[in-house]
């Protein structure tokens, strides 16, 4: 117990400031996020709430998974933005897809998508999911995700860095708020 207390006190807080989106290098994201300030009260309220993510590996090379796991480490601490990963698609807002769709996972993908409540956001993380990456279509690899599911947002990268994924998930909050507004 003493060890734990000592380490807890000595190591301090490793968490970094959230990615500075206003100074972000990706300009169109910046535009998207600047627009948030001009949104009405209702949308802003929706935006301030939590975002529950169901991760779905459809055949990635596990680098994207490694970066998604890294989001929970003390440097990024994704939960402070209200973003949580969930075990069940039944209470997920976002389906985060990595990897090109493989033949063996197509049915699992459809079932997971159908199990999610509306409104739902599908986000493709990494080149594999966004455009198929280096993987060609073969007997077992069916290619990019948006052939099968309506993708709302793309976070490209090989793999995208944790900062980029955080930025992308924050944009997803906005998209979710928009969808909710449109649905009434």
């Amino acid at each position: 117990m003493f060890n734990i207390l000592k380490m807890w006190i000595m190591k301090g807080n490793a968490t970094e400031a959230p990615p500075n989106i206003r100074d972000g290098d990706i300009t169109n994201w910046q535009k998207d996020l600047n627009r948030i300030d001009k949104l009405d009260k209702k949308t802003k309220h929706a935006l301030s709430r939590s975002l529950i993510v169901r991760h779905l590996d459809l055949g990635s090379c596990n680098a994207e998974e490694a970066e998604l796991i890294a989001l929970s480490n003390p440097f990024y601490d994704i939960s402070r933005f209200g973003v949580e990963f969930t075990a069940s698609p039944r209470h997920a807002d976002v389906l985060a897809i990595t990897g090109p769709v493989t033949r063996h996972l197509k049915i699992a993908m459809e079932r997971t998508y159908n199990a999610m409540p509306n409104p739902k956001i599908v986000v493709a993380i990494g080149d594999g999911a966004c455009n198929g990456s280096v993987y060609e279509k073969t007997y077992a690899c069916l290619g990019k995700v948006d052939q099968f599911l309506p993708v709302d947002f793309y976070i490209p990268g090989d793999p995208p860095s944790p900062e980029e994924i955080i930025k992308g998930l924050l944009v997803c909050k906005k998209l979710l708020a928009q969808k909710e507004e449109n649905n009434g």
Binding site: L58, G59, T102, H104, L105, Y135, T138, A140
Partner: peptide
């Protein structure tokens, strides 16, 4: 499940 046929 993630068999992509990379060898092919």
């Amino acid at each position: 499940y993630t068999h992509k046929g990379i060898e092919k």
